[in-house]
Structures are given as C-alpha cells and as structure tokens.
Design a binder for these strands. Structure first.
Lengths: 266, 266
DNA sequence: CGCATCATTGAAGCCCTTCAAGACTTGTGG
DNA sequence: CCACAAGTCTTGAAGGGCTTCAATGATGCG
C-alpha cells in the first residue's frame, strides 16, 4: 500500500523526542497539542482515568503507532483519553501542518489513517464483548495473546509480554488481585511461566485456544499463520483477508518497528 | 459541512427497500454485500452473536445512519458483526460504486464518513469503560440517556425509548433479570415511568446525573444544552466543541431524519 | 382473539471485589 | 556496590453484586 517514496516522506516528517519513563504520560488528558505523536520504541497504552481514580486501558500501542490518532478530526470527543508509557518509550512528533500535507499529497496515507480508525473501533468492539461476556481466565488469556500477536506484527519476537499484572488488570477491567490469581491458574495449566516479574508464554496454541483468540479482527494477514488457531471458521475467514498487500500493524499505519527505527538511527 | 448540492447527490443515490420487522437482521453476519445500507426510519442495533448464543449489542443506530459503515475499508475484520432491527425499520441501499463515486466527488463526504468511524470508536470506548467499571444502575441509566440524546439528534422528540428491556440488557452486558430489577429501582426513584411495555423518562436531568452522562463523546454541539448537565467540567468542554457547523448525528453522516424522509416521500 | 414474546418475581449460588498484610523485584541514590 | 525505597506481586478471608434457574403474569402483534 505505502510506496517507498511515501514512506520516506512520512519518516522524514518525524522529529525524535527524548525518551519517556514507564508510568509517565505521553499524551495527557485534556490537552490539544499542535502536533501528532508517533511511538518509535517501547509499549504505550491509551487509557481513561475515572473519578474514583481507577484506570481503564482501552488498548496497547506498539512501535509505529500514532498515539493520538483518536484525536484526529474529532479532538473534542476524546479529550479525556490519555496515553501513558507501559515501558520506557521513545517518541517522535509530526507537526499538524506536516501531517495534513502528507494526507493531501498521499491519498493512500489518509486511507491508512482512516483504516486505522476502523481497526481501533474493531478492537474496541472485541474488548467490549470480552469484558461483558467472558470469565476472567479467558479475558486475561486473550489479552496476553493479543499482545503477543501485536508484538510479532511490530517485528518484536519474544515470548514475554510488556504489560505488568496491574496493566493487564486495568485493561481487562478486573482487580489486580484477581488477575494475579488468574495468572497463577494459567501457570498451573502450564500455558505461562515467569521470568522474574515478567510473564512468558509457554504454549501459545493452547493459550489461544482457551482464550478463543481468533485475531482476524486485528487485520494481520499472514502473521497469524504460526498460531495454528483452532477456532471454528477461522481458517475460512482467513483466506478472505488478503486484501492489503503490505501487512499493517494494528493501530499502526506507518510500518514495522525496524523500518521506523532504521530511519532514526536506533 | 455538507452543502445542499452534496446532500442532494447523496440522497439521490439511495434506493428505498421494503420495511423490516423487529428482530429481523438488516445485515447478517458473514455476508459482504456489494452495497451499503442506510437506515431511513426506525431503530437498529449492531451486534455480535457469541458461540453460547448470547448477543452483545455494540451500539444502537438511528435514522440517517449507514448501518454497515464498520465494513468499509476493512470488511474482513468485522464479518461477525450483524445489524438487527430493534423496531420496524425502513432501509435504503447505495451501490458500492455510487458510494465510492460520492466520496471521490465530495471530499467532505469522505471526511464525514471518516469522522463517523472515529465517533463509533469514541462511543465504543465509553461503553467499554461503563461495562467494566460501573454498577448496573449507572450502566442502564446511561444507556437510556444516550438513546434519548440520539433520538433528539435524529429529530425524534419523545420521552420514551425504543429498545426493550432485553435489548438494554444485551447492550449493557447484563442479564435481562437484573436489568428488570434495575429498571424497577429507577421507577422507584421517580426517574422513569412505564407506558405499557415502553420505558418513559420522567426526570431527564436527574437520570443524567446518576448516570454520569456527559454526552460530549457523542459530538452533538448545541443539542445537549437542554440537558443542564451537572458533570464537573462538562460546560468547559462544551464551549470548545463548536467545530462542525452542521450538527452531526452520532453514527450518522447524512443528516436528520426529516431530511432523509422528506427526500423519499415518507 | 390466540399465541409468541417480553416482563416480573423469588431463591440459591458463584465469581469477583475489597481489605489487609507480608514477600519479593527493581532501580535509584548514597 | 550495596542498601534502601518504591512499587509490584502474593496470599487469605469476608462480602456483595450479579447470574442462573424456574415459573407466572402481562403485552401486543398477526
């Protein structure tokens, strides 16, 4: 979809900013900066803070993502949404005028942004279904699966996931205590193991099975082949999803992490 | 945003189809028709059917909405999403080629569709937060408030809402039994009353208060003035949301119900 | 007017939450 | 390099909100 020339134009519009420590906001709630922010390295999350102090994580973001895409076109509807660093992050900025120029010059870039918005809605719908209708074990397993799949899509190949148990709890809409007990159960089942504080996936296939993880909603053609998913109808749906020739990162319209990082000399 | 000429072009591309009875699918899961569907009259809902038969409603749709906008650009990610008639509905279709032609001819129409996708994501995020973090009373009250506000936005001015208790249950992610008990509580508090089977809002302001209904996320500038919302910061946010001169229907990019219906002689 | 659908009500039970306290990691500063 | 501090993980006990099951009553469409 993106031509090399287009990709080059996009990358050259990105200005690298300093690193951000875990827990710090990349984009604060209630602000409307005159630029867009690109995640270059690390993992971030878009979240909302409730009056009682609870944090609801909407989704996690991986390198290549435009963190504040949700503000585009309708900034006033999502002022309460913030973006925080789940791990140490490196970010870049694109000036608003440059972004608009890029969209004007490369219609396919605008389409990619639009598609990205659709993808975010798709992911959010799935999260809604899980949150309301599935037990904790499946919810947590599904979140782990999604993180693993999205890491792969971003070109990161490790069996450990970045979010802490508290992060997972805030994303699943469960208490940290209960997420801990759920992890313990997944450890007991031999699907996960622990390396220090980090959670490591031992049996990806079984985990996906009990999570009912399908992954089609993430629009990552080709990348889910490894998963050998056992969901009924998954393979049938799979064959039909070859529309985009360049694999798109979920919530990412730019490219893979390596492409981004090469361009900024990481 | 939409000029009269543009609106005329859009409306003339719509072909009216026969009415649809309550409970019947407007768009079935797993299908990819070569046209888009516009809701002309009645109330619909986009939903997903789970393996165990449960139904999760993502959102309700009002006249003027493009029912299958979620299929646009990324049809394969939302094949499981269906759209059903909550009340008796009248629909129209726009051929795929006509829709693409309209987007090509009127860039502002494409932008409106894009904005609509962002709005759907915004609504879904809010639904996710409510579903995971709020008690049943607030969830149900919030759904009622949202329906009332969206009816108003579509030009329908009645204090009763269309969805049945079961519909509300499937949208809130609660059991029908518990929604019934929640409604009973709202009746006892004097916020709702009943007309036969229908639920009628008696005290809109108090209902919005206990629901923590803000409404900014719906992007309906001007239309929320009547609500006299009591949420902290709501008025401040309000003043900044005058960007679009023409009030947009939530999940609607066309116009108000009366405009649609006038054009088809309803 | 008949029948399918929806609303209502009670009882029993489970999943998850909250509270509280102690063990462990991590990385920061001395 | 070590020690401390801050945050995270872990574990137990008690309780509440919601679910499920089941049966009856009301509504409204054809």
């Amino acid at each position: 979809m993106n031509s090399d020339e287009e990709l080059g134009a996009i990358l050259s519009a990105i200005h690298v900013r300093a690193g951000i420590r875990r827990g710090v906001d990349i984009i604060a709630a209630g602000t409307s900066p005159r630029h867009s922010t690109v995640l270059l390295d690390g993992v971030a999350c878009s979240y909302e803070r409730l009056p009682d102090g609870a944090r609801q994580i909407h989704s996690f973001q991986y390198p290549g993502a435009i963190c504040d895409l949700h503000r585009h076109l309708l900034p006033e509807t999502s002022l309460e949404v913030a973006v925080g660093a789940v791990t140490k992050c490196t970010i870049g900025v694109i000036h608003q005028e440059d972004l608009e120029q890029l969209i004007a010059n490369y219609p396919s870039f605008g389409l990619a942004l639009w598609r990205d918005a659709m993808l975010e809605a798709s992911t959010c719908r799935k999260a809604l279904v899980r949150a309301t209708r599935q037990p904790a074990l499946r919810r947590v397993a599904h979140i782990v699966c999604e993180q693993l799949a999205r890491q792969e899509a971003a070109g990161i190949d490790t069996p450990t996931i970045s979010p802490s148990q508290m992060d997972v709890a805030d994303a699943a809409g469960l208490s940290a205590v209960h997420v801990n007990r759920t992890f313990k159960e997944l450890l007991r089942l031999g699907l996960l193991s622990k390396q220090g504080r980090a959670v490591k996936v031992v049996n990806k296939r079984k985990l996906a099975s009990i999570a009912h993880f399908n992954g089609t909603y993430l629009n990552m053609p080709g990348l889910l082949r490894h998963w050998q998913l056992e969901i009924a109808g998954a393979s049938a749906l799979h064959e039909r999803s070859g529309a985009t020739s360049r694999p798109l990162n979920p919530t990412t319209c730019l490219c893979t992490r390596s492409e981004v990082q090469r361009s900024i000399g990481l």
